[in-house]
Design a protein around this nucleic acid. Structure first.
Length: 420
RNA sequence: GGAGGAGUGCGCCGAAUCGGUAAGGCAGCGGAUUGCUAAUCCGUAGCGGGUGAUUCCGCUUGUGGGUUCGAGUCCCACCUCCUCCGCCA
């Protein structure tokens, strides 16, 4: 949720930010409703004060006649109060409906652009592999070696599902272990999260207003399936107040993630790049506002450290305003090199959501000066499916084997995937 | 799924008769004082509104409704936790 006070004081900055994000919100209407709402609230408070006073008199009254007289007078006030209350509820609902539509604003330094075409490459790392043969794509490798089976998954579950099998299962466990080792050494507390969460929490995290189509909803129980453990780790501390000395509070979550991939029909239909279900290790930080930019750089540095350990060539992207989600003020993606496609594809994403989610979740921190909203940040430590693709494709040999990156050797009983 | 019990101000504990308008304690934080591994004393809930500022007003007893002049207290629905039964990896 965005800060209404800021909107009142800086309406054109907010309008400008919404425009940059390609989001349509009627800020003038919001301010008009806000003004009306406060007026109604004021008269409501006056009438409540009147009732409180009169009720005190009634409880202090000594004679029955006096009491009855006061009570009969109060019946009228009660009706006036009820009418006013109804008016307030209606306008309050309209107000929150409009306020919910306001996204977080991008930082000034975020490149302005319409869509992902205008994202900026910040840097490239790692050397691209050169093959003296035509590299196979991950699905060919996977089927040949019997480590990925999307055909049978289609039979059991439908399109965009997969069975991971044999060595790739152990590879995934090794990847999880590597991530947990790197992150816990840096002070992230590991957590396995629920994968279902309540509508109000999903809403507070800023995922429902736009982008709700991508989320699975369990009708019978009115619960959402998490698209990332970020959506669950934020609400973990809802309605809590941290002490400043306990910040930054860092978690590394491991969970299965679910996405409907609505609107991506026909896109990346082959293999396991874009599936309804995958596992992911996710970092999440609660910080003070002063520290959030520094924390964002830190999360990015952890992502890069893991990519370097895995020896996967990648590029870092500064996401432009039009491609930012509602809750984010700034976002970096990491894209890994996929030899079969001859391009970089997204594997990581890290966002600074400033106080946008914290306000909705009511998560604050306290110091000598007072109580303030925290900033929340998230970042992918490692998304399993896509990283597995990068490892399979970048490390294939002429003989048709897959070399495992050294950093994973200590977690595995093999250093190469082979088929004789 | 069935039966019973519970939820009180960032945290922990906890009082409030027949409905009369949220005591108190601990912790934490701020301050004072003493002076030495600490003790004592004072202050301190949050949010919203309003004001130049202070005073001030309103809301909040798990959540949302209802009854009433007035609800922590009575009624309804829901949430969470505990106990028992049933089912179950």
């Amino acid at each position: 949720m965005f800060d209404i006070k800021y909107i009142r004081e800086n309406p054109h900055l907010v309008k400008d930010g919404c425009k940059k994000k390609q989001v349509e919100v009627d800020i003038d209407k919001l301010l008009e409703v806000d003004k009306k709402r406060r007026e109604v609230q004021r008269s409501l408070e006056e009438i409540k004060a009147e009732r409180n006073k009169a009720n005190k008199m009634i409880s202090d009254a000594t004679s029955k006649e006096e009491k009855d007289k006061l009570i009969s007078e109060m019946k009228e006030v009660k009706e006036k109060h009820a009418a006013l209350n109804e008016e307030f509820n209606a306008i309050d609902e309209e107000f929150h409906g409009l306020l919910r539509k306001v996204p977080n604003l991008p930082f000034d330094e975020v490149p302005v652009g319409k869509d992902d075409e205008e994202n900026k490459v910040i840097r490239k790392e790692g050397e691209l592999p050169s093959f003296d043969f035509t590299p196979s794509d991950h699905l060919d490798i996977g089927e040949r070696m019997d480590i990925i089976d999307t055909k049978r998954a289609a039979k059991t579950s439908g399109a965009r599902f997969t069975f991971l099998k044999n060595e790739v299962v152990l590879l995934q466990m090794a990847l999880i272990n590597l991530c947990l080792e790197v992150t816990t050494k840096k002070g992230f507390a590991p957590v396995i999260t629920p994968v279902m969460l309540k509508p109000e929490m999903m809403e507070a995290m800023g995922f429902l207003e736009r982008g709700g189509d991508d989320i699975f909803h369990l009708e019978n129980d009115d619960l959402y399936l998490a698209g990332t453990s970020e959506q669950v780790i934020g609400p973990m501390h809802a309605k809590e107040i941290f002490k400043q000395k306990d910040l930054p509070k860092r978690y590394v979550g491991y969970s299965t993630c679910f996405r409907r991939e609505a609107g991506s029909y026909g896109k990346d239909t082959k293999g396991i790049l874009r599936v309804h279900q995958f596992d992911k290790v996710e970092m999440f930080s609660f910080t003070t506002p002063e520290r959030s930019k520094e924390e964002h750089d830190f999360l990015l540095s952890v992502e890069e450290e893991i990519m370097k350990l895995l020896e996967i060539p990648y590029q870092v992207i500064d996401i432009c305003t039009g491609d930012l989600g509602d809750p984010a003020a700034k976002k970096y993606d990491i894209e890994a090199w996929m030899p079969s496609q001859g391009k970089y594809r997204e594997t990581h994403s890290t966002s600074n959501c400033t106080d946008f989610q914290a306000r909705g979740l009511d998560i604050r921190y306290k110091n000598k000066e007072g109580t303030f909203y925290v900033h929340t940040l998230n970042g992918t430590a490692l998304a399993m499916g896509r990283t597995i693709i990068a490892i399979l494709e970048n490390n294939q040999t002429k003989e048709g084997n897959i070399k495992i990156p050294k950093a994973l050797h200590k977690y595995l009983p093999f250093t190469e995937i082979t088929r004789s």
